[in-house]
Design a protein around this nucleic acid. Structure first.
Lengths: 149, 149
DNA sequence: TTGCCATATTGTAATGATTACAATTAAATT
DNA sequence: AATTTAATTGTAATCATTACAATATGGCAA
């Protein structure tokens, strides 16, 4: 039931000389199966059930490692809520201010480079939007029809 | 020596029924004069010198208030480092991974709306880039010429 | 397969940013 | 100037994250 990208991820880890420990594989596997931009807490709770010896520190350590080698990106769209995302392709993040869910959307920031930054070395790009998602919009509209200008 | 936008900000506060207290004015004035995307700590330290009775809680309260009414935006480009920005115009943020400085750059996300999000209500947009700024680049290049792929 | 060594993991304690809250003070209106 | 309402203060609580030393484990060599 392995995600096709999972193997290639393992190879990348090996090539970097990173030990494929049980917990690391679990965290990585979780990220390849859950595109829900989970928090450390969510990952920890989910994996702790099947691997009761897993500590939260290890989740932090593993995620930090994966971010360092570029396999995982950090989503800091909101305070006190660091989220993680294994997707690599060009996309932005929309956070619903009502239900809290984070949606991916495609956006290409590379096609028209920013003139102002031509002498900057850009290693990382992200786009964050906030607002109300369609599902919450339909709920709100039916009751109040209030606009939050 | 008042910044031209300062008065209009005050009017906006009044129109919202927000009391123009001494500390609030100080924080607002600081933000209109310092476009350096300061942290709470930086604002507190700077203002505490001239207003020793200012508490850090008040800085937090004031900033949260200004964010709520839309006068200030939060920059969460990095963990543990919430920054504040009074600029309203369309722009993104570049953070130098070497010196830590945050640069503004112009970017227009409104001219080509994201098709995927047409049924979303978008209240807020931001673009975060990370990398190395020209000043740090020239320092690094002279010594190592190493590329961080 | 077994043993060894380097590294990963654990768990607790420390840190640091942010918030809660009750007492005090100040702003604005009469 | 008095009054009322809201802002401010300062301490303590909370929460996410990290530091660190002790322990356990992965992967290589024999």
């Amino acid at each position: 039931m392995m995600n096709p990208t999972f193997k290639s991820l393992l190879n990348l880890l090996k090539s970097k000389g990173i030990r494929l420990s049980h917990h690391r594989l679990k965290v990585l596997e979780y990220l390849t199966k859950n595109f829900s931009h989970p928090t450390v807490e969510q990952i920890y709770i989910a994996l702790h059930e099947e691997s009761p010896t897993l500590s939260k520190t290890t989740v932090y350590n593993t995620l930090n490692l994966l971010v360092e080698i570029g396999l995982v990106r950090v989503i800091n769209i909101e305070d006190n809520e660091t989220r993680y995302d294994i997707t690599i392709k060009n996309h932005g993040h929309f956070k619903c201010e009502s239900c809290g869910k984070i949606y991916d959307f495609g956006i290409d920031l590379d096609s028209s480079p920013i003139e102002e930054l031509k002498s900057f070395k850009i290693n990382y790009k992200d786009v964050y939007f906030k607002g109300i998602c369609p599902s919450c919009l339909s709920n709100i509209d039916k009751t109040k029809l209030k606009t939050e200008e």
